[in-house]
Design a protein around this nucleic acid. Structure first.
Lengths: 252, 252
DNA sequence: GCAGTGCCCGCACAAACATGCAAGATTGCG
DNA sequence: CGCAATCTTGCATGTTTGTGCGGGCACTGC
């Protein structure tokens, strides 16, 4: 078995079964405990997992950084519907600011061939629009965050200061009952705030499962959002809270 | 069995069966392990698959379009040699600034797995390093220029102002007999100058066909270049002009 | 304090690797 | 067609890297 494969397999087992012992891994993979220890050492150094006496534990922030493909697959229908509705808000000639995430990626697909300027820090959006000859694409710089296919950091925010957009399409990991937007990853929050300041109109893209959704970090309140695009079946009280704060709610 | 056919067959097997060992491929295809290793080497360099000890893994972004395949093919051997030599100049922990172009893309391949911070405005470099878990990648922002797979504009230069790099690896479309660097595309020239200011050491990557090469736009003089990496057979007088201006010349 | 377990370290062996070289295959040209 | 230049391939070389094992040591639980 290739060393590389073994590393991947160990990572998978630790992730799925929680804690895993050196002995079990050794017998299950048919190698000596020494080998497992050495493997765990490098995986621990990589930050892939946490080494403890007798075995290994999944790393706390590892499952926060869920693989992009998994997330993209969840609630795909709803996200597509939201993206389709959102695309109708875009006018020719617009400067469109796209947040990171799978929903905005879907929206980007619908902007292909449109005469718009897209500004983004999302590499998923870049992938979608890279070969399109019509759309002008302005990529914000920043440090690459591989699991999110995004760019973050001071460079990204500095670049945003030089941008004025007609419309921002914002993602979020959740909307709380009082209409506040929340997220899970600390690095993205200041960036989202900067994007909000840079845009004339803020459109929230959130499929119905985002109500309430997960996340403990406050991004902004409902008063910062001009339009909410979501699906039928989203939590009614939350939607009313958004509407009460002045947001227009669009259902698909 | 012909080499080309074997390459295709290896690619197919790696793609379908996930991971494949050198030994298995050798026995199954009826050739020696050395041959397989050589095949895997070129396929890895092409970005078709990823080489690991003992075998090869399918490349995640393999079906993503191969950046400027046609340009990259010209003088490929020479460029690869230049890139290999240049990679030896990089030290662990370096902040490496990579210009756009095919030669720097080759260099980026050789930085995979190295503990370095790569700063670039090249999407080709992004493609190469995007899935590498070790290299830190800082992408400069900017307007997408599709034919060049690069980012340019005020955003790019503004981002560069906030960067200090240990080494810049600079491309050029030509070096004139007096050692001046020239280029063909006006949008890139100010960017190259900014990169030169942002780096402590400037390394010019130019295969032997770049002497004299084409281009009417002056980028900088030989005095701005610290190291020139090129091939045996590059125009001697030009090299002497570079050396006279204080540049160290490395031949492959 | 005393097993028992897991770990670190050094060593030995094996597998995989890079390199140089020579024989065979292929191509190009006269 | 013949010959030379080039490329490809397999093998032998020495080197690097991964793996397994055993002894001494540290930590844990009784």
């Amino acid at each position: 078995m290739l060393q590389r494969l073994r590393h991947a397999e160990i990572t998978r087992r630790v992730r799925t079964s929680g804690a895993t012992s050196v002995r079990d891994l050794a017998t299950q993979l048919g190698v000596s405990p020494s080998t497992i220890r050495r493997d765990l050492e490098v995986l621990d150094r990589d930050g892939t997992l946490r080494r403890v006496r007798g075995g290994a534990l999944p790393c706390a922030d590892a499952d926060a950084e869920r693989p992009f493909a998994d997330v993209a697959a969840t609630d795909e229908q709803d996200k597509e519907a939201v993206a389709t509705r959102a695309a109708e808000l875009v006018r020719d000639g617009d400067v469109v600011l796209l947040d990171i995430g799978t929903t905005t990626m879907c929206l980007a697909r619908r902007l292909r061939g449109r005469r718009v300027i897209v500004v983004t820090s999302s590499l998923a959006v870049l992938d979608v629009l890279r070969s399109d000859p019509v759309v002008e694409l302005l990529l914000l710089g920043g440090m690459l965050r591989r699991p999110y296919h995004s760019l973050v950091g001071v460079l990204t925010e500095a670049a945003l200061c030089q941008v004025v957009a007609d419309r921002l399409f914002l993602g979020a990991s959740g909307v709380r009952p009082d209409g506040q937007l929340v997220d899970t990853t600390i690095a993205e929050v200041p960036l989202k705030r900067s994007m909000i300041s840079a845009a004339r109109q803020v459109v929230l893209l959130a499929d119905r499962h985002k109500f309430p959704g997960t996340g403990a970090l406050r991004v902004c309140g409902p008063e910062d959002v001009d339009v909410v695009v979501t699906n039928e079946g989203a939590d009614e009280p939350t939607l009313r809270a958004c509407a009460a704060a002045g947001a227009e709610v669009l259902l698909t």
